[in-house]
Each structure stands twice: as C-alpha cells, then as structure tokens.
Design a protein around this nucleic acid. Sequence first.
DNA 1: TTAAAAAGTGATAATGATTATTAAATTTTA
DNA 2: TAAAATTTAATAATCATTATCACTTTTTAA
Lengths: 130, 130
Amino acid sequence: MTIKLSNTNQRRVIIEELKKLTSHPTADELYEIVKERLPKISLGTVYRNLEQLSAAGLIWKLELSGSQNRFDGNVEKHFHKRCPNCGAVEDIEYHAFAEADRHLTNACQNYAIEGYTLEFRGLCYCCQSS
Amino acid sequence: MTIKLSNTNQRRVIIEELKKLTSHPTADELYEIVKERLPKISLGTVYRNLEQLSAAGLIWKLELSGSQNRFDGNVEKHFHKRCPNCGAVEDIEYHAFAEADRHLTNACQNYAIEGYTLEFRGLCYCCQSS
DNA sequence: TTAAAAAGTGATAATGATTATTAAATTTTA
DNA sequence: TAAAATTTAATAATCATTATCACTTTTTAA
Ligand SMILES: [Mn+2]
Ligand SMILES: [Mn+2]
Ligand SMILES: [Zn+2]
Ligand SMILES: [Zn+2]
C-alpha cells in the first residue's frame, strides 16, 4: 500500500532543499531555490513532486486557511502560527498544546470525527517590533 | 469605527438568503439562489457583498483549508466539520468543545498568539451510509 | 545485460476561484 | 434636490494550481 516513487534527481533535490528550510515555503518559493541547483527544472515538476511526496507522507502539505499552500519538511507532530501581518508561518512545539490536543481528541470520540486541523494566528517577531 | 453599508436591494437579498441556509454555501452557490429573486445580479456583486458583510461582522467568511471559501449567516461561536468525501460543511455546537477551547485559550496566554482556527474532519451522514 | 514497460520531465496550455476595472445607476448627504 | 459617495453589471485580469503531451529517464524482469 506504500506509494513507490522513482529515484529522480529532481525529486532528490526538492526534498533535500525543503528539509533544509524551516520557512514553510510555497511551491514557487521552493522552485526558486531548487533552480539554483537544477536550472532547467520546471515549476510543474516542483508542484507534482511536492504533491507526491506529501501523498507518500515524506513531507507535509500545509493547506492553511485563506492562503497559498505551503510545504513542510518536518513531519513530526506540531502546529503552526501564521502572522496576519506578513504571512510568515512558524512552528509551535506540540508540547505547548499537548493537553489541549488531548481534550480535543477526547471530545472527538463522541462524534463521527476523524481528526482536526488547528492553526494559530499571531504577529511574528519582526512584525511585533515595528 | 463601524463600517457603513448602503441599503441596496442586492445586499438585502444576499444576506437574507444566506441567513436562511445552514449549508455554508460558496459564493457561486449563493449566486444561483439569489438569482432566482434578482435575475440580473452578477457574480461579482455577490463576491463583493459577501466580502463587505463579513468585514462588517454581519456574516462569517469560512476560509477552510484546501477548499473554496464558504459563507455562514450564523455568527455565533461554533466550529465546523468538513466531510473529506463530499466536501459538505456542517456545524459543530460550541459546547461540545468548550472545554478544549478553554485549554487552547489558556495555552495561548503564554505565547504571542491572538487566536486560532479549528476545523474538524469526518464523514457526513450521507457519506457514512453508502 | 537489455529491451519493453512504467514513471517522470519540461514546456506550455487550461482551469477555476477570486479580484480589478469602468461606465452607468442608485443611494446618501446636506 | 443637486452634488457627492457608493454600488452595480459586465467583463477583463490575475494568480495558484492542474492537465496535456512528446520526449527522456528509471525500473522491471527475461
Ligand atoms: Mn512546521
Ligand atoms: Mn456554521
Ligand atoms: Zn509578520
Ligand atoms: Zn459527505
């Protein structure tokens, strides 16, 4: 049942560059970065691979509400905070909200709910000091 | 500071029809409904008014992750569940998750977080029985 | 090892949701 | 009631994403 992916150079570079970043880039932001190593790569290839890699569980596709999709090389359980001013997306350590998560999951038991998506809003460091 | 909106017939009908529904329609779905009363109305007018009405706090704009925006005539505090199979959006009564909400809000205090967005995933009634 | 089959690529076109533009109409202001 | 402000309908433009397709690369399995 595991998805099988060919070993192409493009795929290798895409996942490698994504995993270097903590910025949760959009497909086109990552495209610009990958292009430095693979100048002939096309944006469609980046989109296609990000889609496949997230389907395979190797990366995360962040479908944040009301914004362009972003991608995350860190697949450990954690949440995100988006800055309403500049749009930056930052990690929030899971442990900070672990208890709330337990309560949410428990409340879910009584309903036909499979899971939830939770995202926070708050000014990033840059936008706080300006 | 309150936003002032002119009293146009289009605006009146849009909000009136939205408030009749519990289906959280998209702009184009509501457009089809409103068109029965105002056949000459344009889709752009529906988009513009939904935007203004939600900016004024008279309705809710639901920016659900990874899907077209939907609109809600019910501005009381509540959450939503989206069916991963058919895309339907249903209400979840706030009280069911009030305790979890308290925990989330408390955890937020220690961080520069202004608020959060929470949405659930689960098969709707139709999709469960098929 | 090699040839057929499968998967992936790059270039580009197409799609779909939303926003912008603009002249004309309506509503508000005073 | 006339000028100012807002809104409308029609339409064009934008922007993110997906689809298409001829060609190349990778995988499979004899
Ligand atoms: Mn992250
Ligand atoms: Mn609702
Ligand atoms: Zn910021
Ligand atoms: Zn369903």
